[in-house]
Design a protein around this nucleic acid. Structure first.
Lengths: 189, 189
DNA sequence: TCATCACGAGACAACTATGTCTCGTCTAGG
DNA sequence: CCTAGACGAGACATAGTTGTCTCGTGATGA
């Protein structure tokens, strides 16, 4: 059983390395990925039949990782605004490694749709609880939230922030907007 | 002079076709691009020395197009909020064709930086005029704005909206945020 | 009418990537 | 100690891509 354990670890290493390789060189081939993973090229083919297959599995892997991180964030136990913060932080964390996957796979697997689904469910919950505005469909609220997260992972000024600062900035702007209003005084704990 | 005119038109057609080809097949090669442009492969090499060269010029071209559309929007003549709307609409319009370029060129040319610069300048103006919040740096406001625009071009629920609806949604969410407040009643003209 | 020139078609070599296969090594479980 | 199997190295055939070159055509401007 230790053998299959080690195979699974190698597989993970390959997939993570693939994400890294694709992040730095978009047309990375099997040789680049193998080099990034520190394994022989033959080993790649022992785990994935074709390059396409590897990319598909990478999408699945990244989505599963994100879902795992989201589940660990325990967003169901807290209020909507806190849940928004936790979900954002979770996706910023896992996204640092894997956001590139989304640019390489227009076609979505169920596992990948699931991530967007979580955003949508939370938006709906916020609307039901009267925390989020209901004059914009939950899908669009969720899309805007997702766009901000993606932006924080890819756009220069935001990606240079740490996860905590980026989370803070995104959630504040997402909830309160960019307009100056005499409304907000952040409630001290 | 008509000859160079026609060459310029062919060049434009190639670059636009390249954007299309890269949008549908990320690893599109010279043959794919030529086919998309409806020209012979040799013609590509008459205009661009290498594939890399073509991609660089595509980045420049897309940025110039965006800048042109922004300039035509006349954002300096109107208030900050209207300018925000016009700038968003301009970028959504030109972006429909060219957003893909940004995913293919991490390295930025001056012409490409210019687009982000316009967003930042407008954010700064909004802060100076007291329309936008000043507790978040203008770069981050601009990045969030850009992220929403990018999201509207790439994420399913937003990209399926028309340009007008997407502009509306983005600007409203960007300015007012997603939180439900008894604040806003959109002032009827 | 004639010369020019951008073009399409396609041949071509050099290179690169993909996928398969073999062999020798090292490790872990038996 | 011994064997199974995961691995690295690398040879190999095939396919695809890149970049160059040539030739014939058709349109433009003189």
């Amino acid at each position: 059983m230790t053998t299959s354990d080690s195979m699974a670890r190698t597989r993970d290493a390959i997939l993570r390395a693939a994400a890294t390789a694709l992040r730095t060189h978009e047309r990375a081939g099997m040789a680049d990925i193998a080099a990034a993973a520190g394994v022989g090229r033959a080993t790649l083919y022992r785990h994935f039949a074709t390059r396409d297959d590897l990319l598909v599995e990478l999408g699945r892997f990244a989505a599963e990782e994100s879902i795992r991180v989201i589940d660990a964030a325990g967003i169901d136990g807290v209020g909507t605004e806190a849940a928004l913060t936790r979900l954002t932080r979770a996706l910023l964390t896992s996204g640092r490694e894997f956001w590139v996957v989304s640019t390489h796979r227009p076609q979505l697997w169920p596992e990948e749709e699931e991530v967007g689904e979580r955003l949508r469910v939370l938006a709906e919950r916020g609307q039901r609880e009267g925390v989020l505005r209901a004059d914009v469909p939950a899908e669009l609220l969720a899309a805007a939230h997702g766009a901000l997260i993606l932006g924080a992972l890819t756009l220069a000024p935001l990606s240079e922030l740490g996860v905590e600062d980026a989370t803070d900035t995104i959630v504040r702007l997402y909830l309160q907007g960019a307009r100056l209003t005499p409304t907000e005084a952040s409630p001290p704990p």
